[in-house]
Amino acid sequence: MRFFAQIAAFAAVAASLASANSLTFINQDDTTRKIVFTPNAGLPTIDSVTVQGNDQVKVEVPNGWIGNAYSVSEGATDSPGMLAEVTFQGWNDLTYFDVSAIVNGNDKDGVKQMYPATQLSALTKTLVSGCRNFPCNSAYYQPDDIQTVSTEETDLIVTLGNTASDVAARDAEPQLVARHYVLGKLSA
């Protein structure tokens, strides 16, 4: 009888681990960053974590958690920049996520992109929010933007900082970006 109880307990733990939510923060340059989490009212807090330069940290997130995270570069003032916003187990049990420029669209070094961990890279994937270089048309600029992405996945990647190719592209010829993205407005 005890054997069956142990198997049942193991199965319950395995099931809970399989359905666990996570955010993996991948730091793409040599700047150390602190990740600050802000839950929606009434939801559990998540302690800040530090991601060393060119490293990554995986953070387990409670079931049904809704909130955001932003990064603070070492030595910088702690103020929100680009936000990695997420809803786990939302409507229809889906995960909703977006990179939001609403609070501080001038943050060029913090949160860059979000995508499901099963995609491994945001370069050729379709379920991506955010930009390698801001502004772009796949970030959230206004409260009614249609840029939130949904997935059945519960493990998300959040990229931080700039790769060498990001810096080179940003420093190259100026990109033409629709005026309403630069101004944060929907109409041109």
Rank of each mutant, 00 (worst) to 15 (best):
residue 77 T to M: 08
residue 76 A to G: 06
residue 77 T to I: 10
residue 74 E to W: 09
residue 140 Y to M: 01
residue 139 A to Y: 07
residue 54 N to F: 09
residue 138 S to E: 08
residue 38 T to C: 04
residue 106 N to Y: 00
residue 105 G to S: 09
residue 29 D to Y: 02
residue 167 V to M: 02
residue 164 A to K: 15
residue 20 A to V: 07
residue 141 Y to W: 05
residue 95 T to Y: 06
residue 37 F to D: 12
residue 113 Q to N: 07
residue 116 P to W: 00
residue 73 S to I: 01
residue 172 A to P: 01
residue 106 N to P: 09
residue 38 T to K: 02
residue 22 S to E: 03
residue 40 N to W: 03
residue 31 T to F: 00
residue 182 V to G: 04
residue 144 D to S: 06
residue 156 L to G: 04
residue 145 D to M: 08
residue 166 D to F: 07
residue 88 F to Q: 08
residue 187 S to G: 08
residue 13 V to K: 07
residue 99 V to W: 03
residue 123 L to E: 14
residue 135 P to L: 08
residue 141 Y to C: 04
residue 113 Q to T: 07
residue 77 T to V: 09
residue 95 T to N: 10
residue 77 T to N: 10
residue 113 Q to K: 13
residue 133 N to E: 03
residue 60 E to H: 13
residue 69 A to E: 12
residue 130 G to Q: 05
residue 26 I to D: 09
residue 53 G to N: 10
residue 71 S to N: 13
residue 57 V to R: 06
residue 38 T to M: 04
residue 98 D to H: 07
residue 107 D to F: 03
residue 158 V to H: 07
residue 155 D to K: 15
residue 101 A to L: 14
residue 48 S to R: 08
residue 103 V to I: 09
residue 174 P to Y: 01
residue 55 D to C: 06
residue 86 V to I: 14
residue 153 E to V: 04
residue 106 N to K: 12
residue 112 K to I: 09
residue 86 V to M: 08
residue 25 F to E: 13
residue 41 A to I: 12
residue 137 N to P: 07
residue 144 D to Y: 02
residue 11 A to P: 15
residue 48 S to I: 06
residue 3 F to R: 12
residue 115 Y to C: 04
residue 19 S to C: 12
residue 73 S to Y: 01
residue 55 D to G: 06
residue 162 N to D: 01
residue 36 V to A: 02
residue 153 E to S: 09
residue 59 V to M: 10
residue 20 A to M: 11
residue 31 T to K: 05
residue 174 P to G: 02
residue 26 I to Y: 00
residue 143 P to D: 04
residue 80 P to M: 08
residue 163 T to F: 00
residue 21 N to E: 14
residue 18 A to E: 08
residue 128 V to Y: 01
residue 58 K to P: 00
residue 117 A to K: 12
residue 23 L to T: 10
residue 3 F to K: 12
residue 138 S to F: 02
residue 156 L to T: 10
residue 60 E to Q: 14
residue 39 P to V: 05
residue 89 Q to A: 01
residue 22 S to I: 11
residue 188 A to K: 12
residue 119 Q to I: 06
residue 23 L to C: 06
residue 95 T to F: 05
residue 152 E to G: 11
residue 183 L to T: 11
residue 27 N to W: 02
residue 117 A to R: 12
residue 16 S to C: 04
residue 26 I to Q: 13
residue 34 K to D: 02
residue 10 F to P: 00
residue 81 G to A: 06
residue 176 L to C: 04
residue 8 A to R: 13
residue 120 L to D: 05
residue 176 L to D: 09
residue 188 A to R: 09
residue 130 G to A: 06
residue 70 Y to G: 05
residue 65 W to D: 03
residue 163 T to I: 01
residue 15 A to C: 11
residue 121 S to K: 11
residue 174 P to M: 05
residue 151 T to L: 05
residue 76 A to C: 02
residue 25 F to S: 04
residue 133 N to S: 07
residue 179 R to L: 10
residue 41 A to L: 11
residue 90 G to M: 06
residue 184 G to L: 10
residue 16 S to Y: 10
residue 154 T to M: 00
residue 72 V to L: 09
residue 144 D to F: 04
residue 138 S to M: 11
residue 35 I to A: 03
residue 116 P to A: 04
residue 21 N to D: 14
residue 62 P to N: 14
residue 83 L to C: 08
residue 33 R to V: 05
residue 134 F to P: 02
residue 33 R to T: 01
